[in-house]
Design a protein around this nucleic acid. Structure first.
Lengths: 111, 111
DNA sequence: AATAAATGTCGTATGTTTGCGACATTAGAA
DNA sequence: TTCTAATGTCGCAAACATACGACATTTATT
Protein backbone atom coordinates (compact mmCIF):
# COMPACT_ATOMS: atom_id res chain seq x y z
CA UNK A 1 0.00 0.00 0.00
CA UNK A 2 2.92 2.34 0.59
CA UNK A 3 3.71 4.09 -2.69
CA UNK A 4 6.90 5.85 -1.65
CA UNK A 5 8.82 4.23 -4.49
CA UNK A 6 6.92 6.47 -6.91
CA UNK A 7 8.93 9.45 -5.71
CA UNK A 8 12.47 10.71 -6.33
CA UNK A 9 15.30 9.04 -4.46
CA UNK A 10 16.27 12.37 -2.92
CA UNK A 11 12.83 12.89 -1.50
CA UNK A 12 12.71 9.34 -0.23
CA UNK A 13 16.01 9.75 1.52
CA UNK A 14 15.02 12.99 3.18
CA UNK A 15 11.70 11.40 4.16
CA UNK A 16 13.61 8.51 5.75
CA UNK A 17 15.62 11.00 7.78
CA UNK A 18 12.40 12.77 8.75
CA UNK A 19 10.99 9.49 9.97
CA UNK A 20 14.11 8.80 12.02
CA UNK A 21 13.75 12.09 13.89
CA UNK A 22 9.95 11.84 14.16
CA UNK A 23 9.98 10.32 17.65
CA UNK A 24 11.12 12.24 20.72
CA UNK A 25 12.84 9.16 22.17
CA UNK A 26 15.12 8.97 19.15
CA UNK A 27 15.85 12.68 19.35
CA UNK A 28 16.66 12.30 23.01
CA UNK A 29 19.05 9.45 22.22
CA UNK A 30 20.87 11.64 19.71
CA UNK A 31 20.99 14.51 22.18
CA UNK A 32 22.28 12.27 24.95
CA UNK A 33 25.02 10.88 22.73
CA UNK A 34 25.99 14.39 21.67
CA UNK A 35 26.42 15.30 25.35
CA UNK A 36 28.20 12.17 26.52
CA UNK A 37 30.19 11.65 23.28
CA UNK A 38 29.96 7.93 23.77
CA UNK A 39 28.08 5.73 26.17
CA UNK A 40 26.78 2.34 26.97
CA UNK A 41 23.38 1.08 25.85
CA UNK A 42 22.16 0.59 29.42
CA UNK A 43 22.90 4.21 30.31
CA UNK A 44 20.69 5.31 27.44
CA UNK A 45 17.83 3.06 28.60
CA UNK A 46 18.09 4.47 32.09
CA UNK A 47 17.90 7.97 30.72
CA UNK A 48 14.79 7.42 28.63
CA UNK A 49 11.32 6.94 30.12
CA UNK A 50 10.53 3.80 28.17
CA UNK A 51 11.28 0.13 28.67
CA UNK A 52 14.71 -1.20 27.81
CA UNK A 53 13.19 -3.24 24.98
CA UNK A 54 11.59 -0.21 23.38
CA UNK A 55 14.77 1.83 23.67
CA UNK A 56 16.66 -1.02 22.07
CA UNK A 57 14.31 -0.85 19.11
CA UNK A 58 14.74 2.89 18.75
CA UNK A 59 18.50 2.36 18.83
CA UNK A 60 18.11 -0.15 16.02
CA UNK A 61 16.24 2.33 13.87
CA UNK A 62 18.97 4.91 14.32
CA UNK A 63 21.58 2.24 13.59
CA UNK A 64 19.79 1.20 10.39
CA UNK A 65 20.19 4.74 9.10
CA UNK A 66 23.81 4.94 10.31
CA UNK A 67 23.02 7.90 12.50
CA UNK A 68 24.63 6.05 15.39
CA UNK A 69 27.05 3.20 15.74
CA UNK A 70 27.43 0.57 18.44
CA UNK A 71 30.72 -1.03 19.34
CA UNK A 72 30.93 -4.16 21.43
CA UNK A 73 33.08 -3.81 24.54
CA UNK A 74 32.90 -7.02 26.48
CA UNK A 75 29.45 -7.39 27.87
CA UNK A 76 28.52 -3.81 27.08
CA UNK A 77 27.90 -1.93 23.87
CA UNK A 78 29.25 1.55 23.40
CA UNK A 79 27.14 3.79 21.25
CA UNK A 80 28.25 6.96 19.54
CA UNK A 81 27.06 9.35 16.86
CA UNK A 82 28.11 8.74 13.28
CA UNK A 83 29.07 12.29 12.37
CA UNK A 84 29.75 11.49 8.74
CA UNK A 85 26.34 10.10 7.99
CA UNK A 86 24.54 12.64 10.14
CA UNK A 87 26.26 15.38 8.19
CA UNK A 88 25.29 13.73 4.93
CA UNK A 89 21.63 13.85 5.93
CA UNK A 90 21.99 17.41 7.18
CA UNK A 91 23.41 18.28 3.76
CA UNK A 92 20.39 16.81 2.00
CA UNK A 93 18.14 18.63 4.44
CA UNK A 94 19.85 21.99 3.90
CA UNK A 95 19.82 21.57 0.15
CA UNK A 96 16.07 21.01 0.26
CA UNK A 97 15.07 23.61 2.83
CA UNK A 98 17.54 26.19 1.61
CA UNK A 99 15.37 26.60 -1.48
CA UNK A 100 12.20 26.66 0.56
CA UNK A 101 13.59 29.19 3.01
CA UNK A 102 14.46 31.58 0.21
CA UNK A 103 10.86 31.77 -1.01
CA UNK A 104 9.38 35.17 -0.27
CA UNK A 105 6.35 35.39 1.93
CA UNK A 106 3.49 33.92 -0.01
CA UNK A 107 0.44 33.84 2.23
CA UNK A 108 -2.06 36.44 1.12
CA UNK A 109 -4.00 36.48 4.35
CA UNK A 110 -2.73 37.54 7.74
CA UNK A 111 -2.71 33.92 8.79
CA UNK B 1 0.18 3.35 23.88
CA UNK B 2 2.03 6.37 22.57
CA UNK B 3 4.15 7.85 25.34
CA UNK B 4 5.39 10.96 23.56
CA UNK B 5 4.01 13.17 26.31
CA UNK B 6 6.77 11.90 28.57
CA UNK B 7 9.32 13.93 26.63
CA UNK B 8 10.26 17.62 26.53
CA UNK B 9 8.06 19.96 24.56
CA UNK B 10 11.01 20.95 22.38
CA UNK B 11 11.68 17.38 21.40
CA UNK B 12 8.00 16.76 20.76
CA UNK B 13 7.80 19.75 18.50
CA UNK B 14 10.86 18.78 16.50
CA UNK B 15 9.49 15.22 16.28
CA UNK B 16 6.22 16.62 14.91
CA UNK B 17 8.15 18.47 12.23
CA UNK B 18 10.08 15.29 11.46
CA UNK B 19 6.83 13.44 11.02
CA UNK B 20 5.51 16.13 8.67
CA UNK B 21 8.51 15.73 6.37
CA UNK B 22 8.63 11.95 6.69
CA UNK B 23 6.64 11.29 3.53
CA UNK B 24 7.95 12.05 0.04
CA UNK B 25 4.53 13.25 -1.11
CA UNK B 26 4.54 15.96 1.54
CA UNK B 27 8.08 16.96 0.63
CA UNK B 28 7.07 17.13 -3.02
CA UNK B 29 4.13 19.36 -2.13
CA UNK B 30 6.46 21.76 -0.30
CA UNK B 31 8.90 21.71 -3.20
CA UNK B 32 6.15 22.33 -5.73
CA UNK B 33 4.81 25.26 -3.73
CA UNK B 34 8.32 26.68 -3.42
CA UNK B 35 8.62 26.57 -7.22
CA UNK B 36 5.19 27.86 -8.12
CA UNK B 37 4.93 30.33 -5.20
CA UNK B 38 1.22 29.69 -5.00
CA UNK B 39 -1.09 27.27 -6.70
CA UNK B 40 -4.41 25.57 -6.73
CA UNK B 41 -5.11 22.31 -4.92
CA UNK B 42 -5.99 20.51 -8.15
CA UNK B 43 -2.64 21.38 -9.72
CA UNK B 44 -0.91 19.75 -6.78
CA UNK B 45 -2.98 16.57 -7.11
CA UNK B 46 -2.13 16.38 -10.81
CA UNK B 47 1.54 16.72 -10.00
CA UNK B 48 1.64 13.96 -7.42
CA UNK B 49 1.32 10.26 -8.27
CA UNK B 50 -1.40 9.54 -5.73
CA UNK B 51 -5.15 9.90 -5.74
CA UNK B 52 -6.72 13.29 -5.18
CA UNK B 53 -8.13 12.09 -1.88
CA UNK B 54 -4.74 11.05 -0.58
CA UNK B 55 -3.10 14.29 -1.67
CA UNK B 56 -5.89 16.16 0.08
CA UNK B 57 -5.02 14.35 3.29
CA UNK B 58 -1.33 15.14 2.97
CA UNK B 59 -2.27 18.78 2.42
CA UNK B 60 -4.30 18.64 5.61
CA UNK B 61 -1.34 17.37 7.59
CA UNK B 62 0.84 20.20 6.32
CA UNK B 63 -1.97 22.64 7.08
CA UNK B 64 -2.33 21.32 10.63
CA UNK B 65 1.31 22.24 11.29
CA UNK B 66 0.92 25.59 9.53
CA UNK B 67 3.61 24.71 7.02
CA UNK B 68 1.19 25.65 4.27
CA UNK B 69 -1.92 27.74 4.05
CA UNK B 70 -4.95 27.45 1.79
CA UNK B 71 -7.02 30.39 0.71
CA UNK B 72 -10.43 29.98 -0.84
CA UNK B 73 -10.80 31.62 -4.24
CA UNK B 74 -14.24 30.85 -5.57
CA UNK B 75 -14.43 27.19 -6.37
CA UNK B 76 -10.69 26.71 -6.05
CA UNK B 77 -8.27 26.82 -3.15
CA UNK B 78 -4.93 28.52 -3.48
CA UNK B 79 -2.18 27.00 -1.44
CA UNK B 80 1.09 28.62 -0.46
CA UNK B 81 3.97 28.10 1.94
CA UNK B 82 3.77 29.65 5.38
CA UNK B 83 7.29 31.05 5.54
CA UNK B 84 6.97 32.23 9.11
CA UNK B 85 6.09 28.89 10.58
CA UNK B 86 8.45 26.98 8.33
CA UNK B 87 11.25 29.22 9.55
CA UNK B 88 10.22 28.66 13.14
CA UNK B 89 10.57 24.90 12.68
CA UNK B 90 13.85 25.35 10.84
CA UNK B 91 15.07 27.36 13.81
CA UNK B 92 14.21 24.57 16.22
CA UNK B 93 15.87 22.10 13.88
CA UNK B 94 19.07 24.15 13.61
CA UNK B 95 19.21 24.70 17.34
CA UNK B 96 19.07 20.94 17.89
CA UNK B 97 21.34 19.76 15.10
CA UNK B 98 23.79 22.60 15.50
CA UNK B 99 24.87 21.00 18.76
CA UNK B 100 24.98 17.56 17.24
CA UNK B 101 26.95 18.74 14.24
CA UNK B 102 29.61 20.25 16.46
CA UNK B 103 30.39 16.92 18.13
CA UNK B 104 33.79 15.64 17.10
CA UNK B 105 33.99 12.31 15.37
CA UNK B 106 33.17 9.69 17.93
CA UNK B 107 33.06 6.33 16.19
CA UNK B 108 36.04 4.27 17.19
CA UNK B 109 35.81 1.82 14.32
CA UNK B 110 36.20 2.59 10.66
CA UNK B 111 32.48 2.12 10.22
C1' DA C 1 30.70 -25.19 35.75
C1' DA C 2 27.14 -22.30 37.53
C1' DT C 3 25.48 -17.82 37.90
C1' DA C 4 24.60 -13.10 36.94
C1' DA C 5 24.69 -9.03 33.88
C1' DA C 6 24.10 -6.54 29.50
C1' DT C 7 22.08 -6.68 25.54
C1' DG C 8 19.50 -8.07 21.36
C1' DT C 9 15.39 -10.54 19.14
C1' DC C 10 10.64 -12.58 18.99
C1' DG C 11 5.85 -12.43 19.49
C1' DT C 12 1.99 -9.88 20.26
C1' DA C 13 -1.27 -6.14 21.33
C1' DT C 14 -2.65 -1.77 20.33
C1' DG C 15 -2.37 2.72 17.94
C1' DT C 16 -1.28 5.43 13.76
C1' DT C 17 -0.46 6.23 8.82
C1' DT C 18 -1.40 5.55 4.12
C1' DG C 19 -4.38 5.12 0.39
C1' DC C 20 -8.66 5.19 -1.85
C1' DG C 21 -13.61 5.14 -3.36
C1' DA C 22 -17.97 7.03 -2.24
C1' DC C 23 -20.36 10.93 -0.53
C1' DA C 24 -21.15 15.92 0.90
C1' DT C 25 -20.60 20.72 0.05
C1' DT C 26 -20.05 24.82 -2.22
C1' DA C 27 -19.56 28.02 -6.19
C1' DG C 28 -20.00 29.19 -10.66
C1' DA C 29 -22.13 28.19 -15.56
C1' DA C 30 -25.97 27.11 -18.56
C1' DT D 1 -32.85 26.23 -10.84
C1' DT D 2 -30.29 22.47 -12.55
C1' DC D 3 -25.82 20.89 -13.81
C1' DT D 4 -20.94 20.55 -13.42
C1' DA D 5 -16.43 21.32 -11.29
C1' DA D 6 -13.24 21.71 -7.32
C1' DT D 7 -12.57 20.40 -3.10
C1' DG D 8 -13.00 18.44 1.55
C1' DT D 9 -14.65 14.60 4.80
C1' DC D 10 -16.06 9.74 5.98
C1' DG D 11 -15.31 5.02 6.40
C1' DC D 12 -12.77 1.25 5.48
C1' DA D 13 -8.62 -1.92 4.70
C1' DA D 14 -3.90 -2.77 4.63
C1' DA D 15 0.50 -1.61 6.31
C1' DC D 16 3.52 0.23 9.63
C1' DA D 17 5.03 2.07 14.28
C1' DT D 18 5.12 1.81 19.24
C1' DA D 19 5.55 -0.57 23.42
C1' DC D 20 6.63 -4.31 26.23
C1' DG D 21 7.29 -8.97 28.48
C1' DA D 22 9.47 -13.25 27.78
C1' DC D 23 13.30 -15.54 25.84
C1' DA D 24 18.06 -16.19 23.70
C1' DT D 25 22.83 -15.05 23.57
C1' DT D 26 27.10 -13.69 25.05
C1' DT D 27 30.58 -12.44 28.42
C1' DA D 28 32.40 -11.82 32.79
C1' DT D 29 32.51 -13.43 37.80
C1' DT D 30 32.54 -16.82 41.50
Amino acid sequence: MNKSEKFDGDLQELARFGKAISHPARLLILKYLADTKTCVSGDISDFIPLSRTTVSQHLKELRDLWLIHGEIDGLKINYCLCSTDINRYLGIFDEFFGKIKSVEITCKSIL
